[in-house]
Protein backbone atom coordinates (compact mmCIF):
# COMPACT_ATOMS: atom_id res chain seq x y z
CA UNK A 1 0.00 0.00 0.00
CA UNK A 2 2.79 2.42 0.94
CA UNK A 3 4.74 1.68 -2.21
CA UNK A 4 1.53 2.19 -4.17
CA UNK A 5 1.13 5.69 -2.70
CA UNK A 6 4.83 6.50 -3.14
CA UNK A 7 4.70 5.41 -6.77
CA UNK A 8 1.64 7.53 -7.38
CA UNK A 9 3.25 10.56 -5.74
CA UNK A 10 6.27 10.12 -7.98
CA UNK A 11 4.08 9.99 -11.09
CA UNK A 12 2.55 13.32 -10.05
CA UNK A 13 5.79 15.25 -10.59
CA UNK A 14 6.17 14.84 -14.37
CA UNK A 15 2.40 15.22 -14.79
CA UNK A 16 2.42 18.58 -13.06
CA UNK A 17 5.52 19.77 -14.94
CA UNK A 18 3.85 18.92 -18.25
CA UNK A 19 0.62 20.63 -17.22
CA UNK A 20 2.47 23.80 -16.21
CA UNK A 21 4.26 24.00 -19.57
CA UNK A 22 1.11 23.38 -21.56
CA UNK A 23 -0.92 25.83 -19.48
CA UNK A 24 1.68 28.55 -19.85
CA UNK A 25 2.05 27.96 -23.56
CA UNK A 26 -1.69 28.06 -24.19
CA UNK A 27 -2.07 31.33 -22.32
CA UNK A 28 0.60 32.80 -24.58
CA UNK A 29 -1.02 31.49 -27.75
CA UNK A 30 -3.36 34.42 -28.55
CA UNK A 31 -1.57 37.25 -30.36
CA UNK A 32 -0.44 40.10 -28.18
CA UNK A 33 -0.10 40.18 -24.43
CA UNK A 34 -1.63 41.90 -21.43
CA UNK A 35 -0.23 45.28 -22.46
CA UNK A 36 -1.75 45.24 -25.94
CA UNK A 37 -5.12 44.40 -24.39
CA UNK A 38 -4.54 47.17 -21.86
CA UNK A 39 -3.62 49.75 -24.50
CA UNK A 40 -6.58 48.79 -26.65
CA UNK A 41 -8.90 49.28 -23.70
CA UNK A 42 -7.29 52.60 -22.81
CA UNK A 43 -7.53 54.01 -26.31
CA UNK A 44 -11.14 52.84 -26.53
CA UNK A 45 -11.77 55.03 -23.52
CA UNK A 46 -10.01 57.90 -25.31
CA UNK A 47 -6.86 57.91 -23.21
CA UNK A 48 -3.54 57.92 -25.00
CA UNK A 49 -0.48 56.27 -23.53
CA UNK A 50 2.90 57.34 -24.78
CA UNK A 51 5.49 54.87 -26.01
CA UNK A 52 7.91 55.50 -23.10
CA UNK A 53 5.25 54.50 -20.57
CA UNK A 54 4.51 51.36 -22.52
CA UNK A 55 8.14 50.42 -22.71
CA UNK A 56 8.70 50.93 -19.00
CA UNK A 57 5.63 48.79 -18.22
CA UNK A 58 6.78 46.13 -20.63
CA UNK A 59 10.14 46.04 -18.94
CA UNK A 60 8.65 46.05 -15.45
CA UNK A 61 6.40 43.07 -16.23
CA UNK A 62 9.22 41.26 -18.02
CA UNK A 63 7.10 40.93 -21.16
CA UNK A 64 9.98 41.62 -23.55
CA UNK A 65 11.88 38.56 -22.43
CA UNK A 66 11.60 35.28 -24.37
CA UNK A 67 8.73 33.02 -23.32
CA UNK A 68 10.90 30.32 -21.74
CA UNK A 69 12.60 32.90 -19.51
CA UNK A 70 9.17 34.10 -18.40
CA UNK A 71 8.13 30.52 -17.75
CA UNK A 72 11.16 29.71 -15.63
CA UNK A 73 10.79 32.95 -13.66
CA UNK A 74 7.18 32.08 -12.94
CA UNK A 75 7.64 28.40 -12.13
CA UNK A 76 10.84 29.13 -10.19
CA UNK A 77 8.95 31.54 -7.96
CA UNK A 78 6.23 28.97 -7.32
CA UNK A 79 8.62 26.16 -6.50
CA UNK A 80 11.07 28.14 -4.34
CA UNK A 81 8.79 30.39 -2.26
CA UNK A 82 5.24 29.75 -3.44
CA UNK A 83 5.25 33.12 -5.20
CA UNK A 84 2.71 32.93 -8.01
CA UNK A 85 3.66 36.34 -9.38
CA UNK A 86 1.65 39.53 -9.76
CA UNK A 87 -1.68 40.08 -11.38
CA UNK A 88 -1.36 42.93 -13.91
CA UNK A 89 -5.04 43.60 -13.87
CA UNK A 90 -5.57 43.78 -10.11
CA UNK A 91 -2.14 45.08 -9.21
CA UNK A 92 -2.00 42.56 -6.38
CA UNK A 93 -0.17 39.31 -5.84
CA UNK A 94 -1.87 36.30 -7.37
CA UNK A 95 -1.58 34.39 -4.09
CA UNK A 96 -3.60 37.06 -2.26
CA UNK A 97 -6.27 37.17 -4.95
CA UNK A 98 -6.74 33.42 -5.04
CA UNK A 99 -6.56 33.10 -1.28
CA UNK A 100 -9.46 35.56 -0.98
CA UNK A 101 -11.68 33.28 -2.97
CA UNK A 102 -10.40 29.79 -2.34
CA UNK A 103 -11.91 29.09 1.14
CA UNK A 104 -15.46 29.86 0.04
CA UNK A 105 -14.89 27.92 -3.15
CA UNK A 106 -13.73 24.87 -1.23
CA UNK A 107 -16.62 25.26 1.23
CA UNK A 108 -19.08 25.38 -1.63
CA UNK A 109 -17.44 22.42 -3.32
CA UNK A 110 -17.48 20.38 -0.12
CA UNK A 111 -21.10 21.23 0.62
CA UNK A 112 -22.13 20.38 -2.93
CA UNK A 113 -20.29 17.06 -2.83
CA UNK A 114 -21.89 16.15 0.51
CA UNK A 115 -25.35 17.08 -0.70
CA UNK A 116 -24.83 15.13 -3.90
CA UNK A 117 -23.82 12.01 -1.98
CA UNK A 118 -26.56 12.28 0.63
CA UNK A 119 -29.18 12.52 -2.10
CA UNK A 120 -27.73 10.23 -4.74
CA UNK A 121 -26.81 7.32 -2.49
CA UNK A 122 -30.21 6.28 -1.10
CA UNK A 123 -32.08 7.24 -4.26
CA UNK A 124 -29.67 5.27 -6.45
CA UNK A 125 -29.97 2.18 -4.27
CA UNK A 126 -33.74 2.45 -4.16
CA UNK A 127 -33.91 2.88 -7.93
CA UNK A 128 -31.88 -0.27 -8.51
CA UNK A 129 -33.44 -2.51 -5.88
CA UNK A 130 -36.98 -1.47 -6.82
CA UNK A 131 -36.35 -1.31 -10.55
CA UNK A 132 -39.39 -0.20 -12.60
CA UNK A 133 -41.35 0.79 -9.50
CA UNK A 134 -43.14 4.15 -9.34
CA UNK A 135 -40.34 5.51 -7.15
CA UNK A 136 -37.75 4.40 -9.70
CA UNK A 137 -39.62 6.10 -12.53
CA UNK A 138 -39.91 9.26 -10.43
CA UNK A 139 -36.19 9.27 -9.61
CA UNK A 140 -35.37 8.59 -13.26
CA UNK A 141 -37.57 11.44 -14.48
CA UNK A 142 -36.14 13.92 -11.98
CA UNK A 143 -32.66 12.65 -12.81
CA UNK A 144 -33.11 13.23 -16.53
CA UNK A 145 -34.53 16.69 -15.87
CA UNK A 146 -31.57 17.51 -13.64
CA UNK A 147 -29.17 16.35 -16.33
CA UNK A 148 -30.97 17.98 -19.22
CA UNK A 149 -31.72 21.46 -17.88
CA UNK A 150 -28.64 23.68 -18.16
CA UNK A 151 -27.38 24.76 -14.77
CA UNK A 152 -27.54 28.50 -15.49
CA UNK A 153 -31.22 28.05 -16.36
CA UNK A 154 -31.93 26.50 -12.97
CA UNK A 155 -29.88 29.29 -11.43
CA UNK A 156 -32.00 31.98 -13.10
CA UNK A 157 -35.25 30.28 -12.10
CA UNK A 158 -34.14 29.91 -8.49
CA UNK A 159 -32.96 33.51 -8.40
CA UNK A 160 -36.35 34.61 -9.64
CA UNK A 161 -38.15 32.49 -7.04
CA UNK A 162 -35.84 33.67 -4.26
CA UNK A 163 -36.35 37.31 -5.19
CA UNK A 164 -40.05 37.21 -6.07
CA UNK A 165 -41.37 35.02 -3.26
CA UNK A 166 -38.82 35.21 -0.47
CA UNK A 167 -37.72 38.81 -0.97
CA UNK A 168 -34.08 37.84 -0.73
CA UNK A 169 -31.22 39.92 -1.96
CA UNK A 170 -30.20 37.58 -4.70
CA UNK A 171 -26.83 36.66 -6.01
CA UNK A 172 -23.56 36.22 -4.20
CA UNK A 173 -23.16 34.42 -0.93
CA UNK A 174 -23.83 37.38 1.38
CA UNK A 175 -26.28 40.26 1.72
CA UNK A 176 -24.72 43.68 1.11
CA UNK A 177 -24.62 44.55 4.81
CA UNK A 178 -22.51 41.50 5.59
CA UNK A 179 -20.30 41.72 2.52
CA UNK A 180 -17.28 43.16 4.30
CA UNK A 181 -18.29 42.42 7.88
CA UNK A 182 -16.18 40.24 10.14
CA UNK A 183 -17.39 36.71 10.80
CA UNK A 184 -20.18 36.47 13.36
CA UNK A 185 -23.40 34.51 13.87
CA UNK A 186 -25.37 36.89 11.71
CA UNK A 187 -22.97 36.49 8.83
CA UNK A 188 -23.07 32.69 9.10
CA UNK A 189 -26.89 32.73 9.05
CA UNK A 190 -26.78 35.11 6.11
CA UNK A 191 -24.44 32.72 4.31
CA UNK A 192 -26.79 29.81 5.00
CA UNK A 193 -29.74 31.74 3.59
CA UNK A 194 -27.82 32.38 0.38
CA UNK A 195 -25.89 29.18 -0.15
CA UNK A 196 -28.89 26.96 -0.93
CA UNK A 197 -29.32 28.40 -4.40
CA UNK A 198 -25.79 27.58 -5.64
CA UNK A 199 -25.99 24.27 -3.75
CA UNK A 200 -29.10 23.20 -5.60
CA UNK A 201 -27.86 24.52 -8.91
CA UNK A 202 -24.43 22.93 -8.66
CA UNK A 203 -25.77 19.74 -7.02
CA UNK A 204 -28.57 18.78 -9.41
CA UNK A 205 -26.55 17.64 -12.39
CA UNK A 206 -24.04 15.78 -10.20
CA UNK A 207 -26.77 14.11 -8.17
CA UNK A 208 -28.71 13.10 -11.24
CA UNK A 209 -25.61 11.70 -12.88
CA UNK A 210 -24.56 9.78 -9.80
CA UNK A 211 -28.04 8.29 -9.32
CA UNK A 212 -27.96 6.97 -12.88
CA UNK A 213 -24.43 5.57 -12.45
CA UNK A 214 -25.16 3.93 -9.10
CA UNK A 215 -28.41 2.47 -10.41
CA UNK A 216 -26.75 1.01 -13.51
CA UNK A 217 -23.79 -0.37 -11.57
CA UNK A 218 -25.92 -1.87 -8.84
CA UNK A 219 -28.26 -3.47 -11.38
CA UNK A 220 -25.25 -5.07 -13.05
CA UNK A 221 -23.94 -6.34 -9.73
CA UNK A 222 -27.31 -7.59 -8.48
CA UNK A 223 -27.40 -10.06 -11.37
CA UNK A 224 -23.93 -11.47 -10.71
CA UNK A 225 -23.72 -15.14 -9.69
CA UNK A 226 -22.07 -14.29 -6.36
CA UNK A 227 -25.25 -12.53 -5.25
CA UNK A 228 -27.35 -15.61 -5.94
CA UNK A 229 -24.70 -17.78 -4.29
CA UNK A 230 -24.66 -15.59 -1.18
CA UNK A 231 -28.46 -15.71 -1.03
CA UNK A 232 -28.30 -19.49 -1.36
CA UNK A 233 -26.02 -19.57 1.70
CA UNK A 234 -28.71 -17.86 3.76
CA UNK A 235 -27.25 -14.34 3.94
CA UNK A 236 -30.09 -12.00 4.99
CA UNK A 237 -31.28 -9.65 2.23
CA UNK A 238 -30.22 -6.34 3.75
CA UNK A 239 -26.80 -7.58 4.77
CA UNK A 240 -26.44 -9.18 1.36
CA UNK A 241 -27.17 -5.92 -0.46
CA UNK A 242 -24.78 -3.82 1.61
CA UNK A 243 -21.96 -6.31 1.89
CA UNK A 244 -21.87 -7.74 -1.59
CA UNK A 245 -23.17 -5.81 -4.63
CA UNK A 246 -23.22 -2.35 -3.04
CA UNK A 247 -19.56 -2.47 -2.13
CA UNK A 248 -18.64 -3.04 -5.73
CA UNK A 249 -21.12 -0.46 -6.99
CA UNK A 250 -19.66 2.14 -4.60
CA UNK A 251 -16.67 2.75 -6.85
CA UNK A 252 -18.15 5.68 -8.80
CA UNK A 253 -18.81 7.51 -5.54
CA UNK A 254 -15.18 7.30 -4.66
CA UNK A 255 -14.12 8.34 -8.14
CA UNK A 256 -16.20 11.51 -7.91
CA UNK A 257 -13.82 12.93 -5.30
CA UNK A 258 -11.25 13.17 -8.06
CA UNK A 259 -13.17 15.41 -10.39
CA UNK A 260 -15.66 17.29 -8.25
CA UNK A 261 -13.05 19.57 -6.69
CA UNK A 262 -11.44 20.89 -9.88
CA UNK A 263 -14.86 21.11 -11.53
CA UNK A 264 -16.08 23.43 -8.80
CA UNK A 265 -12.92 25.50 -8.61
CA UNK A 266 -12.50 26.02 -12.33
CA UNK A 267 -15.71 24.98 -14.00
CA UNK A 268 -19.22 26.17 -13.38
CA UNK A 269 -18.06 29.58 -14.58
CA UNK A 270 -21.42 30.42 -16.10
CA UNK A 271 -23.29 29.52 -12.92
CA UNK A 272 -20.84 31.47 -10.80
CA UNK A 273 -21.25 34.46 -13.13
CA UNK A 274 -25.04 34.28 -13.08
CA UNK A 275 -25.13 33.95 -9.31
CA UNK A 276 -22.16 36.34 -8.89
CA UNK A 277 -20.46 33.89 -6.58
CA UNK A 278 -17.11 34.97 -5.11
CA UNK A 279 -15.42 31.80 -6.31
CA UNK A 280 -12.31 31.30 -8.41
CA UNK A 281 -14.17 30.47 -11.65
CA UNK A 282 -15.12 34.04 -12.67
CA UNK A 283 -11.69 35.25 -11.57
CA UNK A 284 -10.04 32.86 -14.00
CA UNK A 285 -12.44 33.85 -16.80
CA UNK A 286 -11.59 37.55 -16.49
CA UNK A 287 -7.87 36.77 -16.22
CA UNK A 288 -8.06 34.79 -19.47
CA UNK A 289 -9.94 37.49 -21.38
CA UNK A 290 -7.53 40.24 -20.33
CA UNK A 291 -4.48 38.01 -20.83
CA UNK A 292 -3.51 38.50 -17.21
CA UNK A 293 -1.14 35.59 -17.69
CA UNK A 294 0.29 34.97 -14.24
CA UNK A 295 -3.14 34.98 -12.63
CA UNK A 296 -4.65 32.72 -15.30
CA UNK A 297 -1.67 30.39 -15.33
CA UNK A 298 -1.60 30.10 -11.57
CA UNK A 299 -5.31 29.29 -11.29
CA UNK A 300 -4.93 26.62 -13.96
CA UNK A 301 -1.93 25.30 -12.05
CA UNK A 302 -3.87 25.17 -8.78
CA UNK A 303 -6.77 23.41 -10.47
CA UNK A 304 -4.37 20.89 -11.95
CA UNK A 305 -2.79 20.19 -8.58
CA UNK A 306 -6.25 19.74 -7.08
CA UNK A 307 -7.21 17.38 -9.89
CA UNK A 308 -4.09 15.29 -9.49
CA UNK A 309 -4.38 15.25 -5.69
CA UNK A 310 -8.10 14.47 -5.91
CA UNK A 311 -7.42 11.59 -8.26
CA UNK A 312 -4.74 10.32 -5.90
CA UNK A 313 -7.11 10.48 -2.93
CA UNK A 314 -9.83 8.66 -4.83
CA UNK A 315 -7.34 6.04 -6.03
CA UNK A 316 -6.12 5.44 -2.48
CA UNK A 317 -9.71 5.18 -1.26
CA UNK A 318 -10.47 2.80 -4.12
CA UNK A 319 -7.47 0.64 -3.26
CA UNK A 320 -8.56 0.57 0.35
CA UNK A 321 -12.09 -0.41 -0.65
CA UNK A 322 -11.36 -2.88 -3.43
CA UNK A 323 -8.78 -5.62 -2.89
CA UNK A 324 -8.53 -6.18 -6.64
CA UNK A 325 -7.07 -2.69 -7.06
CA UNK A 326 -4.84 -3.13 -4.05
CA UNK A 327 -3.34 -6.55 -4.68
CA UNK A 328 -3.46 -7.20 -8.40
CA UNK A 329 -0.23 -6.53 -10.23
CA UNK A 330 -0.58 -4.58 -13.44
Amino acid sequence: MLSFIARRLLYMVPTLVLISIVAFAIIQLPPGDFLTTFIARMSAQGEAIDQAQIDSLRERYGLDEPIYVQYFKWIGGIVTDLDFGQSFEWKRSVADLVWDRLPLTVLLAGATLTLTWILAFPIGIYSAVKQYSIGDYLATTIGYLGLAIPNFMIALILLYIGFRYFGQSVGGLFSPEYQDAAWNLGKVLDLLSHIWIPLIVLGTAGTAGLIRILRANLLDELRKPYVVAARARGVPERRLLVRYPLRVAMNPFISTIGWVLPALVGGEVIVAKVLSLPTTGPLMLSALTSQDMYLAGSIIMIISVLTVVGTLISDIALAWLDPRVRLRRH
Binding site: K224, Y226, V228, A229, A232, G234, V248, D322, P323
Partner: peptide
Protein backbone atom coordinates in the same frame (compact mmCIF):
# COMPACT_ATOMS: atom_id res chain seq x y z
CA UNK B 1 -36.53 -20.06 4.07
CA UNK B 2 -33.36 -18.10 4.80
CA UNK B 3 -32.61 -20.42 7.71
CA UNK B 4 -33.00 -23.45 5.47
CA UNK B 5 -30.71 -22.02 2.79
CA UNK B 6 -27.10 -22.88 3.47
CA UNK B 7 -27.94 -24.88 6.58
CA UNK B 8 -30.32 -27.68 5.54
CA UNK B 9 -30.06 -27.26 1.79
CA UNK B 10 -26.79 -26.04 0.34
CA UNK B 11 -26.07 -25.28 -3.28
CA UNK B 12 -23.03 -25.00 -5.50
CA UNK B 13 -23.00 -23.37 -8.89
CA UNK B 14 -21.71 -23.51 -12.43
CA UNK B 15 -19.11 -20.76 -12.32
CA UNK B 16 -17.17 -21.12 -9.09
CA UNK B 17 -15.07 -17.99 -9.66
CA UNK B 18 -18.07 -15.77 -10.28
CA UNK B 19 -19.99 -17.32 -7.41
CA UNK B 20 -17.58 -15.94 -4.82
CA UNK B 21 -17.48 -12.20 -4.22
CA UNK B 22 -14.16 -10.72 -5.35
CA UNK B 23 -14.28 -8.19 -2.50
CA UNK B 24 -13.87 -10.64 0.37
CA UNK B 25 -11.41 -13.35 1.22
Amino acid sequence: LRQIRGKDIAMIFQEPMASLSPMYT
